[in-house]
Structure formats: structure tokens, C-alpha cells
């Protein structure tokens, strides 16, 4: 008989009762979709006629389908470029803001604004205008003597627009770093100064090791959102040109709602989930620590 560590007079069911909304929710909105997308993924289903069991055919098709392979490639390319960039920008800005100068609060607020508006459709529309042929971005390039670029027409640049939009929203990641930075005792830096350490050296031997956990959490959060990127390419580039911004998220949407391949769409969803899970597991392994944060 396990002992439950509760106050006197509280039964082991009180906790269960309190989290009962979540228990129902987790069955409906976590376990059910997970199982359902796998099962539907085993069928040929158009959303109207009854599903027809086809076994692993959808999964096999994926392996040879060049659209799927291309979309996975684009998604990985995006994630690999975007996540380190975002972490670097957020951390560097947080470092600047953690120096003791006046007006920090003002800059912090300004840097934070885009991250709360970022996924609003209005921002996607704005971004679209900024990068049209005669848009602000090209006007700025011409100002410094460079030629304008066909952002939407050139498959070398289109993904860059999406990356830049998501980088523009670095504020919330920055705030998380900033909080962690504030928890590092000042004495550490003073001591290192006495020992003759430069600020670069201090960053690598004090700040970075102490920020390990925060860096990891941010990396995981950003990786997840990058792997499932859908709305920015959907609204800004439509996946074009030459499918260079066509992510797995867009592929799932199209298969479901444009081509009515619900079976295949669900199979891809499930694979995307597995890819995310595997990537996160690898990140845990590589960093060599499993967070023991269970309350």
C-alpha cells in the first residue's frame, strides 16, 4: 500500500478530483488525437465515404513521395537555421539588457511587442508588403547601394522571409533569458574580475554554464514551434516558390482540406509528431540531462 503524502484528513482522491478537468481533457485532446491520427493513418479516407483499411500503405507512400520528402527537407532546413539564430539573438539582446544602464524597461517593452503580435494575421499581411518588389525591404537595400531582390520569386530567399518574421518575434525568448540572467549572483562576476577575467571569458565560464537549463528549455520550445510551422508560410508565401517554403504543416493542411486525403493527412500528422518526439529525445540525450521537475 503506497503512502500518499497529503495533509491530515485529505484523501488521495482530492487531488484526482481537482485535476479531473485535465484528466478528461487529456483523454479527449491528447490521447484521443494521438491514437486517432495513427488509426486513421492506416486507412484510405476522403472524409465522406467510410474509411477503407489499407495497413501501412500511407506510411510507405510517404517514403517515396517527393512532395513529402521535400517538405521534410524544408522543415528541417528551416528549423536548423532558425533555432540557433533565434537563441543567439535572444541571448545577446538579453545580455545587453542585463547591463546596468538607464532605460532598460523601455527597450524591454519595445523588444517584447512583436512577440505578442507576431502570429496575428495582420502582421503576416504587413510582412508581405514589406517584401514585395518595391516594398520597404528592397527600398532599404537600394538605399545602401544593393540591388533589390525578388523575395517571393526566388527560392533562395523566400524561406529567409519566414525566418526573419519569426526572428522579429524574439521578445518572449529574450525575456526568459533575462529572468535567468538576473538570478546569477553579481559576486561571481566581481570575483572573476578580481581574478583578471575579461567579459568574454566571464560569459563563457560563468554565464553560459549557469544558463544551461534555460538555454535548453528555450531550444526545445523553439524547435517544437519550428517543426510545426504552418501559419507564416501559409499566409505569406503560400509555400512558394518551387515549394521552397512548403513545410510539413502545410502539406498536412493541403492533403486534408485541398485534396481530401484524410487518411494520408493523419498519417503525416502522426509522423510529424514522432519526428518532434525523436528530435526532442535526441536533444535531451545530447545535453545529457533529463529535467527532474516533477512537483
Amino acid at each position: 500500500m503506497k503512502k500518499y503524502n497529503n495533509p491530515v484528513g485529505v484523501s488521495k482522491f482530492t487531488g484526482l478530483l481537482l485535476i479531473s478537468p485535465f484528466i478528461i481533457g487529456s483523454i479527449l485532446f491528447i490521447i484521443y488525437p494521438f491514437v486517432c491520427s495513427f488509426v486513421t493513418g492506416l486507412t484510405k479516407y476522403d472524409g465522406i465515404h467510410s474509411p477503407e483499411f489499407t495497413g501501412l500503405k500511407n506510411y510507405k507512400n510517404m517514403l517515396t513521395n517527393r512532395h513529402f520528402i521535400k517538405a521534410v527537407g524544408v522543415t528541417f532546413k528551416y528549423t536548423i537555421i532558425f533555432v540557433p539564430l533565434k537563441l543567439a539573438v535572444s541571448l545577446l539582446t538579453a545580455l545587453l539588457l542585463s547591463t546596468n544602464i538607464k532605460g532598460i524597461g523601455f527597450f524591454r517593452t519595445i523588444f517584447y511587442i512583436p512577440s505578442i503580435l507576431g502570429s496575428n494575421l495582420a502582421i503576416a499581411i504587413m510582412w508581405q508588403y514589406l517584401f514585395t518588389r518595391n516594398g520597404l525591404a528592397n527600398q532599404a537595400l537600394e538605399l545602401i547601394g544593393l540591388d533589390g531582390v525578388s523575395w517571393y520569386g526566388d527560392d533562395r530567399y523566400a524561406l529567409f522571409i519566414i525566418i526573419l518574421l519569426r526572428l522579429w518575434e524574439f521578445g518572449s525568448t529574450m525575456i526568459i533569458f533575462l529572468t535567468a540572467l538576473k538570478e546569477i549572483p553579481r559576486e561571481y562576476y566581481e570575483a572573476s574580475k578580481v581574478d583578471g577575467c575579461g567579459s568574454v571569458r566571464a560569459f563563457f565560464s560563468i554565464t553560459l554554464p549557469l544558463l544551461k537549463n534555460t538555454l535548453f528549455v528555450n531550444a526545445v520550445l523553439q524547435t517544437i514551434s519550428a517543426l510545426q510551422e504552418f501559419s507564416a508560410p501559409y499566409m505569406i508565401t503560400g509555400g512558394n516558390p518551387m515549394k521552397s517554403t512548403y513545410t510539413v504543416g502545410m502539406l498536412i493542411y493541403d492533403e486534408m482540406f485541398s485534396y481530401h486525403n484524410a487518411g494520408y493527412a493523419n498519417a503525416v500528422s502522426w509522423v510529424l509528431f514522432m519526428i518532434t518526439a525523436v528530435v526532442i529525445c535526441i536533444m535531451f540525450r545530447l545535453t545529457g540531462r533529463i529535467r527532474k521537475d516533477i512537483p
Binding site: 485532446f29 484521443y32 488525437p33 494521438f34 510545426q228 526532442i280
Partner: peptide
């Protein structure tokens, strides 16, 4: 950690 695009189809 569950991607929205994954749960949205089911």
C-alpha cells in the same frame, strides 16, 4: 509539446 497541426486533424 504536441504540435497543434497534429491534433487539429483528428
Amino acid at each position: 509539446f504536441m504540435p497543434a497541426i497534429v491534433t487539429v486533424m483528428p
